[in-house]
Write a protein that binds this DNA or RNA. Structure first.
Lengths: 190, 190
DNA sequence: GTCTATAAAACGATAGAC
DNA sequence: GTCTATCGTTTTATAGAC
């Protein structure tokens, strides 16, 4: 085997960083290749197209969240309330670790009405995300209410990123976490 | 004097439709000109650049919301609760009238980390939006709580669009409205 | 020699600007 | 319409590991 400058894994990681920060259409293959120390032509030995690369990035994000975030919701070594707090805190921590917020949310906004290519993986991500959150809330609420609370936490989180990006102040994310906990603690009635 | 095929107003309106649906980077000047029945060359008679055009579109949206949406919050001929419901319903109606959701939210996600050009007008929009919502909630809550409730309604609304775009089901927007009303009706304590 | 990851060059299409 | 630049992509050539 000839010398390989980077692994496919590293390419996906670099692409994730760029796509998160600059979006899909504003990130060129030359940018992506340069981030890996390659020329854009060489890039096609790893991926057949920019679209295929983005799909792999989205799938990698989904896998990561399954293994590191969603899994918390089903960890019975913690009480439901603790799981909720840990899962949301982990999600915020992961998203804040690199620039650009939530890639899935960003791509939904940027591409959902332009191409159907990424829709299945994005829908699968948010489906599992909502199921995980609803599972935690179902520790205290009935299935319908749990689902509603999950959807509420999710849309609050995604919307908060708009304000974070515009104001560079991250308190909006912490507020989402706090409100999700308050709703967990609140009485079932109303 | 040469005949002007379309007014600047109409160009801004057509651009708004395209930018909402396809985003900033995926919309070309040729697309925009074609939507107005103009040749590419004629387009720069109206605007000096694509950036300048987008800025005018964003300002037009801001003006429209001031006159048609935010103004509801300050209309003393209705009770605060009615104003809240009318304002949120109007905002949803306006956004749903054409494809693409909320242009301000879309552009914040797509461009905020790529260019500073649009940030001032987007921040001004959300500032006034939050002020309007907080003003309504302040009919029943203290200033801090009113501001928090305003921020919550706003981030819920923006995040809901992600699910609407991915699932083509608009119940997420109605849920945002209903929860905002429930929070208005709720007791001040907790 | 074969295989393969890279660089290099060039493709057609399309971008924004004039 | 024309310009120049750049886009995503493809092709060709090179160089090193078997």
């Amino acid at each position: 085997m000839p010398i390989q400058k980077v692994t496919k894994q590293e390419v996906v990681t670099q692409a994730l960083l760029l796509f998160k920060k600059r979006g899909y259409h504003r990130t060129s293959m030359a940018d992506l290749a340069a981030a890996c120390g390659l020329l854009k032509g060489s890039f096609y030995h790893y991926f057949s197209s920019k679209e295929a690369l983005m799909k792999e990035v989205l799938e990698a994000v989904h896998s990561y969240f399954k293994a590191k975030v969603f899994v918390i919701a089903y960890d019975e070594s913690f009480a439901p309330r603790e799981r909720l707090e840990k899962m949301l805190a982990k999600q915020i921590k992961v998203a804040c670790a690199t620039e650009g917020g939530c890639l899935m949310g960003n791509m939904a906004i940027e591409t959902a009405l332009v191409t159907d290519e990424f829709r299945p993986v994005m829908r699968a991500f948010f489906d599992e995300y909502l199921k995980a959150l609803a599972h935690v809330y179902s520790g205290k609420y009935d299935a319908l209410k749990a689902r509603q609370l999950a959807e509420q936490a999710m849309v609050e989180y995604e919307g908060a990123w708009i304000m974070v990006k515009l104001t560079d102040s991250s308190h909006y994310l912490q507020d989402v976490l706090e409100r999700a906990m308050l709703r967990f603690d609140a009485d079932e009635k109303q």
